[in-house]
């Protein structure tokens, strides 16, 4: 039958006519669809264009976290903290002892430093220059450079630091060089803004030099000493600190009288347990730290009432 159909001239005519008809129909329908699509596309593109024209770029605002309290209390008085200065951070401070060990003579010194690097995303280097001379000898006639490399692990509230104290010295310094490593941890004890007794800072470290016991130093034993401390925020502006320096216990209070202003005062007593030296001594310091890049704007009560509404 198939063979016969191919021999039938009418069969091919009919097949050709059918094919042409289908093609024409498809062609017409395609043109109509394309026109409709082009028109729709044109409307859509025009609407998009109009909307792009009328839309306004978002304002240059951002959501930020503002800490109303400057920072966790320090956990050290006589030993180095695990925190440190990062890029843009600068500080200076003066220290005073009512009398030095085994003497009745007061003593003072001055230090200033700066940081490099971001301690939160990596590590930062803190460099400090210290003048151990103040009154009896000319300022900066006895001094040293100290370095600290440190890291802040904000999510876990951990602080890590290694440093070398008085790495380079000049003049007749009696402190010597000390190398140390220390780890700090901040523990929020209570929720609520600036809650009394709300934050505990802890730190523990090991070091050579002055972190060894007084007996080891006297006997020139090359040991490694352990130091560490606790700091408890009593109220927002006052913290209590107890610190084992590797030789004896220091304890006192740290004051941050102006929140966000970077002024820190410390008063305490050194050599409380008479493990070293010849009895307790009054010590104090005043320091100022700031970040030259830090946003100095403050929160007003009104700032806290703002609410962004997603359209």
């Amino acid at each position: 039958m198939a063979y016969l159909r191919h021999l039938d001239p009418g069969f091919w005519r009919r097949r050709f006519a059918t094919a042409v008809g289908v093609l024409l129909a498809v062609g017409c329908a395609g043109r109509a669809d394309a026109q409709t699509a082009r028109a729709a596309l044109g409307d859509s593109a025009r609407l998009d264009s109009l909307r792009r024209f009328y839309r306004v770029p978002p304002p240059d605002v951002q959501q930020i976290t503002v800490a109303k309290f400057l920072g966790a209390p320090g956990s050290t008085i006589g030993s180095p903290s695990a925190s440190g200065a990062g890029v843009g951070d600068y500080f200076f401070g003066v220290g005073f002892q009512e009398r030095t060990r085994y003497t009745d003579r007061p003593d003072g010194g001055f230090g200033a430093g700066a940081g490099l690097g971001d301690p939160e995303s990596g590590v930062a280097l803190e460099t400090t220059v210290t003048s151990f001379s103040s009154v009896r000898h000319a300022f900066l006639s006895i001094g040293g450079f100290s370095f600290k490399v440190h890291h802040r692990d904000i999510p876990h509230m951990m602080l890590y630091a290694v440093g070398i104290e008085n790495a380079l010295t000049w003049g007749h310094t009696d402190g010597g060089t000390s190398v140390y490593g220390t780890v700090g941890h901040v523990v929020p004890l209570r929720s609520g803004d600036d809650a009394a007794f709300g934050v505990l800072s802890t730190s523990v470290g090991v070091g050579t030099g002055r972190f060894r016991s007084e007996a080891d130093i006297r006997n020139h034993r090359h040991t490694v000493g352990v130091f560490g401390g606790l700091g408890l925020r009593i109220v927002a502006a006052v913290s209590a600190t107890a610190d084992w320096t590797g030789q004896d216990l220091d304890a006192g209070f740290t004051f941050t009288p102006f929140a966000g202003r970077g002024i820190v005062g410390t008063m305490g007593v050194a050599d409380l347990t008479r493990h070293a030296g010849n009895g307790p001594r009054f010590i104090m310091s005043v320091g100022f730290g700031f970040n030259a890049r830090r946003d100095n704007r403050r929160l007003s009560p009104e700032d806290l009432s703002a609410v962004f509404r997603t359209p």
């Binding site: 400057l70 920072g71 966790a72 209390p73 320090g74 956990s75 050290t76 030993s79 180095p80 903290s81 925190s83 440190g84 200065a85 951070d89 500080f91 401070g93 003066v94 220290g95 010194g109 001055f110 230090g111 430093g113 940081g115 803190e126 400090t128 210290t130 040293g144 100290s146 600290k148 440093g163 104290e165 008085n166 913290s239 740290t254 941050t256 970077g262 820190v264 410390t266 310091s285 320091g287 100022f288 730290g289």
Partner: peptide, 9 residues
């Protein structure tokens, strides 16, 4: 006063 411990907070 050999580090920023003087302003640790």
């Amino acid at each position: 006063i050999t580090s920023s411990s003087v302003v640790s907070p």
